[in-house]
Design a binder for these strands. Sequence first.
DNA 1: CAGCATCCAGACTGATACTG
DNA 2: CAGTATCAGTCTGGATGCTG
Lengths: 138, 138
Amino acid sequence: MVDLKEHLKEFGMKNCPIDNGLKIIGKKFTMHILRNMLLLKQKKFNEFLRSIEGINTKTLSLRLKEMESEGLIKRQIIDKRPLRVEYSLTEKGKSLEPILVQMAKFSLKWESKKIFPKEKPMTVTQVFGTERLSKIWD
Amino acid sequence: MVDLKEHLKEFGMKNCPIDNGLKIIGKKFTMHILRNMLLLKQKKFNEFLRSIEGINTKTLSLRLKEMESEGLIKRQIIDKRPLRVEYSLTEKGKSLEPILVQMAKFSLKWESKKIFPKEKPMTVTQVFGTERLSKIWD
DNA sequence: CAGCATCCAGACTGATACTG
DNA sequence: CAGTATCAGTCTGGATGCTG
């Protein structure tokens, strides 16, 4: 039985699983793109562009390439003329959903005032739906 | 039963729980500091400074202040002369542990070659210990 | 629609020095 | 020990315009 402390002592901080995870999803907007794909079922460049506030074409383009080369998403050309492209999640990409869920859970617990500007707070189950959660939280 | 899609349609993307979570923990090194506090039980400025690669005093100082003002950590002066300060997690800060765990889980599943440079992959349970996990993964 | 190119601003880094 | 200060340099992201 080894804990993270021992692991880091043996392999060094460079081989930390959390550090490694952050290298993949820690960049600005990566999680937003993932959220849009996983939870909003978006697939197209301009869908991301419109609904992720603050992002621009340059950064979006860059992130999508990074995510593709990390194996989180696949890029598929649907049509040549006019050009139509769709992005879809790989199994690796889908496996990041629990992180999103935990993040939402955190916000719902501690930041509900910012999330529900007028109405009364809701539970995580209400926001995500029980079916979805039963699959996510195993 | 409302899902995130409906929530965002009603309240707008600015009130997204994931977006909100990312604003709190999405900055560079915030999660590293959290990892060091939660899993390595570190409490002091220079401990963070030495074991988070790439960070410098300026950024560390900034992050600690941000985290304090977000209510994730507490700053306590232990001694005046010489000055000794200890940082500790609040309940809000501790509640971020599941996110770290999910991130580690992801890395262990998909990036084990980077995490275990020589040896054979280990399970999450081996890395974190079963007792710990039984508390984290409810 | 799906981007690329360019130029500019801001965030972070690195080194070093200094304070209570 | 626990930071602050400063200056320089790099890297990331923002704004705008343009292309096939």
